[in-house]
Design a protein around this nucleic acid. Structure first.
Lengths: 361, 361
DNA sequence: GCCTTTTCTGTAATCGATTACATCATTCAT
DNA sequence: ATGAATGATGTAATCGATTACAGAAAAGGC
């Protein structure tokens, strides 16, 4: 509340008008009057400046500066029949994995005319409610980081002709050809398996994500494919069901520890870093050392991976890029870009980061 | 894209109208016509239902159902002179710590009439731009999780009479009496120090957050106070400058390791869990074991703390609650609640969680 | 010099909902 | 029976910007 104005010079002349007590904020009408032109001209100065003569344009801008005028977005949106916002649907905001994607998204949209609206699917009463965002003209487009949108919901969207303004990022919806931006999950899982193989491991287990998740399926399939290709021994109990969480990693550790030394794998590839860290914690608690007694590879390369003990070998997903690309593609679409590009799926490259949780056998 | 309709019954009669090809979405005018009333009546049915007679109200609702009418938010906002959205300002979206607060916020706002808009301060060209969100009528209120808003910016807000719609959560701005919701940081730091003291530690170091951060100041002051009260030895080099990050924890480890065994503290209280984990990683790399050779306490209780090796003793902040409370208070204010309650600061309790990174000396 | 373009600007309708005010019908008191 | 109070609904102005259409001025062609 202190406001010790230094010196005498008053800065911020721009908004000076709006400062006083009541002083209504300037409308387009006021600018028009100040510049001695019509409101149409002012509007044009803002949206299509090259339609105006040099002098008029200057005069309008001067008047805008003077009055501290700002476009009223509600009015503009009403007239333009758009919302000026996009919705980002997040499965779980509490998960750091998603927040970094958000960061990339946010960066791109910040530079655009659109605001970013965020909705956690967990806090959504009914998925159908999503359509309302469009129908209420609260959003112009949507990016879903949640692959578990029901086909029914998407059908509803399609019937209301909004599905061409929806993009999936990171996860996607199986069986529906919405455009999407995602990591090369197959390559990631293959890299992980190959790495373990190269270190001499043959008995390799995999802790999956939640069963119905698309990522789970792709990564598991890649594991099975690698297993076949590399001619690795296959045991059903070496595919352990998880759900990406720390807790499920720890639970997986118990499953592995319950196996006799003969049956136990020598390496584990986890579908997420959190799972890997949970697994390592579980193994550690039982006196099984990583990587001496067992090698572990994660997926994601969250910040903490580098600082874990042992530092985690993992597959890096470039989440910033994922977010940025998704944002760019949606913007493109909203600004009248091609409706359905041939390249409906945009794969972002992944890479193997070798640290200390894996070791040659 | 599949849409295998089961059976003959057509569900979703509600939006059935809007399905077809062109079919413009229904306006209030259409509903009025369908119900045989005026638009005013329809509007009233929606906002002040008890002004209408039972029969009229029913008729209107029936017409709304029939037409699949949805209020156009842009129009409503324009007329009501509001935005229907609040902005949440996050210092760093990539940081998991904030995302959980967002989760709490999001939960509360999802049930309200307001949408949540997110902005990462890092992607903000100029802080002054924030005022534009208000001036453009893009938001009705704002919650800042960033304590580094400049006094200048806030002054500008005040001059434009929007500062009574701003709330701080988690962090706050020093010297400005904006209402805020925050953890009891002093208690937290005191609990940490007390815990180490009770374990017999006397030589206790502290790794701070970034210098200009308010949390840093409060926590450091509490450390100094506890030190004085418990009559602990004080060495200037035992206060190590950090910035909440993993990297700064590792850097702090190097500082500590550079001290001779005589000068080295036996315990360290870190201003964040990430710093603590970075510190432990740094110590580990140098062969110094936690907690055997040194005890470490963190602050935050991020999810990973429980799964770290060793599991991290820390101060738990209830971020969900922090977010929820902040959201509730802002909502209250926006819906015409008291402008400046006496209880401008809402302290959320914290607690000590003892795990394996601390040990009696 | 006259007609056709082109360039620039203004008039006024429009986007879709809200609400102050007016109107009409009841109800009730006296 | 008359006037006041109450309740229910309609009329029309309004929020603030955009833009189709039209008109005026300037430029260009012959």
């Amino acid at each position: 509340m202190h406001c010790i104005a230094g010196g005498t010079g008053t800065e911020e002349p721009k908004t000076a008008m709006a400062q006083g007590t009541g002083q209504r904020t300037a409308r387009i009408q006021d600018v028009a009057r100040a510049a001695g032109v019509s409101t149409a001209t002012v509007s044009r100065a803002l949206s299509k400046p090259d339609l105006l003569s040099e002098t008029t344009r200057e005069a309008v801008f001067e008047a805008i500066r003077l009055t501290g005028y700002r476009v009223n977005q509600s009015a503009r949106n009403l007239r333009r029949q758009r919302a000026g916002a996009v919705l980002v649907l997040v499965p779980n905001l509490g998960n750091p994995f998603f927040s970094q994607i958000l960061s990339g998204l946010s960066e791109v949209f910040a530079a655009s005319e659109y605001s970013v609206l965020i909705q956690d699917t967990n806090h959504l009463a009914r998925q159908d409610g999503l359509l309302d965002f469009f129908l209420d003209q609260r959003i112009d487009g949507m990016i879903s980081l949640d692959g578990s949108l029901s086909v029914g919901t998407l059908d509803l969207m399609a019937r209301n002709a909004v599905s061409d303004r929806i993009l999936c990022a990171c996860e996607w919806v199986a069986g529906v050809d919405l455009p999407s931006v995602r990591s090369d999950n197959h390559k990631g899982a293959t890299l992980a398996m190959r790495h373990l193989y190269d270190l001499g491991h043959r008995r390799i287990a995999h802790v999956t994500g939640p069963v119905q998740n698309v990522l789970t399926q792709v990564r598991r399939d890649a594991v099975l494919a690698a297993r076949a290709e590399l001619d690795l021994p296959a045991r059903p109990e070496w595919i352990v069901r998880g759900d990406f969480s720390l807790a499920s990693g720890r639970a997986a550790a118990e499953r592995l520890l319950a196996m006799s030394a003969n049956d136990r794998p020598s390496a584990v590839f986890c579908a997420s870093d959190e799972t890997a860290l949970g697994l390592i914690a579980g193994l550690h608690a039982a006196g099984v050392q990583v990587p001496d007694d067992m090698s572990v590879v994660g997926f994601d390369d969250i910040d903490l991976a580098e600082y874990a003990i042992p530092a985690l070998t993992t597959i890096r997903q470039d989440r910033q890029t994922l977010g940025r690309r998704a944002a760019e593609r949606l913007l493109n679409r909203l600004d009248g870009g091609p409706l359905r590009a041939a390249d409906t799926v945009d794969l972002v490259d992944v890479s193997l980061v070798v640290r200390d949780s894996t070791r040659a056998i």
